[in-house]
């Protein structure tokens, strides 16, 4: 590692970093720029908005939102003294949300008309099917929870009471 070491200038010294990595990055930027001018040829503002917006929206809105929702869920489960059972709620909820986010245009029906016109099939089935999958996910999770509670109880019965 080398650094720009002319301290006489009096600016804060920012080291250069690895020359090899600098070369790699330069190659990468050259390729990205070559494709980028073509990507931006039509509607540069819209595309920049989408790319930068996607990164910012994900990192600064979506991620904090689902992290906060998860914390709230954990806190609620903790308050009920059931923190270790929060997974039975958050796993089906997360999977259901994942499906909703990925297939939102079809599930919400926002492209239903175009879908029907283009493919000759109705888009009405997507919402009920998503709800059904969600029900199965939560139902399955509830079943697993019931089994685990039953097992714990049976194990507790077999064990002699713990001495405190």
């Amino acid at each position: 590692m080398r650094s720009i070491s002319d301290s006489r200038i009096g600016l804060p010294r920012i080291p250069l970093g690895s020359r090899f990595q600098l070369l790699l990055l330069a190659c990468s930027f050259a390729l990205a720029a070559y494709a980028g001018v073509r990507l931006l040829a039509d509607d540069w503002f819209g595309v920049v908005l989408w790319i930068v917006g996607a990164a910012l929206l994900h990192d600064l809105v979506l991620l904090p939102l689902y992290a906060a929702a998860d914390r709230a869920l954990l806190a609620a489960a903790g308050a009920a003294g059931r923190r270790e059972r929060a997974g039975y709620m958050r796993v089906p909820a997360a999977l259901s949300l994942l499906l909703l986010v990925v297939w939102f245009p079809l599930i919400s029906g926002m492209t239903a008309d175009r879908y029907r016109s283009a493919t000759g099939m109705s888009a009405d089935g997507f919402l009920p099917r998503w709800l059904l999958i969600t029900a199965v996910l939560f139902g399955g999770s509830a079943l697993l929870l019931a089994v685990s509670v039953l097992r714990q109880r049976r194990a507790a019965k077999r064990r002699p009471p713990a001495v405190h």
Binding site: M1, L16, G17, Q21, I51, A55
Partner: peptide
Amino acid sequence: SVVHGLERVSLLLLV
């Protein structure tokens, strides 16, 4: 570092 700064710009393109 300079390289680290450039890497972060590259990460914006990546993400």
